[in-house]
């Protein structure tokens, strides 16, 4: 099968499957009752609190865990940033290939390669660390493995190696279909989680409130 046809076929089948699964998940979530907090006189500004909750991810000095484990944080950011580049690559190379000029390709390769290195470290960490093994299930290992293949495939595609591109789009298809069933869908819930955390923290004045100089 011709590569361009294969790419389009993968998107044509995979993307709607993912969209449908994610939509079902969101409808299910939104139909659930919301636990409303009616405690009076919040100590902080709710909007500011929500904003802070979202921005904390970009402010590692604000969390003790990321302050102490700055390398883990860096790895986390590099890993996810590379994945974001790679997801956009899957669509750009199929529907807007003209954008992928030589300099753009180099930038993509750099980000995805760093993500691959970070991913390998994370994968090994999950295997060798007892505190990670105890919270890991087959889905955790498989999802990680899939993302490693995804990154390898992305790099091979950017290097214009044909068999690598076939492998890449096979993984893309698998990824699109599998995401809705696996832990990969966690990012779908991320905005909700940060929203709830932000409102609760603002209510109690942990976010959305100036620290007074005692």
């Amino acid at each position: 099968m011709e590569l361009t046809y294969y790419q389009e076929l993968v998107h044509l089948i995979g993307t709607p499957v993912m969209v449908i699964l994610y939509t079902i998940r969101l409808i299910y979530l939104m139909r659930m009752k919301m636990a409303k907090d009616r405690s009076p006189d919040p100590k902080g500004d709710l909007l500011k609190g929500i904003g802070e909750a979202f921005l904390t991810l970009a402010a590692p000095w604000k969390m003790d865990s990321t302050r102490r484990h700055w390398f883990v944080y860096l790895e986390f950011m590099v890993f996810h940033l590379g994945i974001a580049f790679n997801i956009s690559l899957a669509y750009l190379i199929t529907y807007a290939a003209a954008i992928m000029t030589e300099p753009v390709r180099l930038v993509f390769i750099a980000f995805i390669a760093l993500s691959l290195i970070a991913g390998i470290r994370r994968f090994i960490g999950r295997i060798v660390r007892a505190d990670m093994r105890v919270i890991s299930v087959p889905d955790d290992y498989f999802s990680m493995f899939l993302l490693l293949l995804f990154n390898i495939g992305g790099i091979l595609t950017l290097l214009e190696i044909e068999w690598g591109s076939y492998m890449y789009f096979t993984v893309v298809g698998l990824f699109l279909i599998y995401a809705g069933f696996s832990k990969i869908h966690h990012y779908l819930y991320y905005p909700f989680a940060r929203f709830f955390y932000g409102t609760d923290s603002a209510r109690k004045g942990i976010f959305g409130k100036e620290i007074r100089d005692a």
Partner: peptide
Amino acid sequence: LTRQMETWLNVCAHCGLCNDS
């Protein structure tokens, strides 16, 4: 099982960053 609880149960990616907190 509220919307919040459903979110907290779904969103954990087993990243382990909370472990030594």
